[in-house]
């Protein structure tokens, strides 16, 4: 998988996918987008989801004692994903681990009826890895 667009296209191929983006959670910048945004503007959604991701990545309750694993200390937050369930949909935010300093995550917005949350989580984990590991 060569890059961001291919990664987002694959995410959009999941059942019930309505929108996908790759977002930087420090700045709130959308590095790439596909499909729709719940508010009709991907940049607004990126800024909002970035705030949520930043909280999860930085609050001690989610990270304390978790950054050192059996494999030694790794860069990036130990949080793997976030799921927000609404009446009409699911939002899955999957952190992307890079071996240079970055703060990005994949955001997938799914229709609640046609989406498959369990499948989406597994596929997003896989996509997040392949995006940076090839």
């Amino acid at each position: 998988m060569p890059g961001i667009d291919e990664c987002l296209l694959e995410a959009m191929a999941l059942p019930g996918a309505r929108g996908a983006s790759l977002v930087d959670w420090t700045s709130g910048l959308a590095l790439g987008t596909a499909g729709d945004s719940p508010v009709g503007d991907h940049e607004t959604t990126a800024a909002e989801t970035a705030e949520l991701a930043r909280s999860a990545a930085e609050f001690d309750s989610f990270t304390a004692g978790d950054s050192v694993t059996a494999g030694g200390e790794r860069p990036g937050p130990p949080v793997e994903d976030l799921i927000v369930t609404t009446r009409a949909g699911y939002h899955v935010l999957r952190f992307v681990e890079t071996s240079f300093d970055s703060s990005v995550f994949l955001h997938l917005w799914l229709d609640r009826d046609s989406g498959n949350l369990a499948l989406a989580r597994i596929r997003l984990r896989d996509l997040a890895e392949r995006l940076v590991l090839g």
Binding site: I4, C7, L31, T98, G134
Partner: peptide, 15 residues
């Protein structure tokens, strides 16, 4: 480098 890494890093640097 992998394609995705390059894009993430380069886009970040450009903005």
């Amino acid at each position: 480098l992998h394609g995705g890494e390059l894009e993430i890093c380069h886009l970040g640097a450009v903005f």
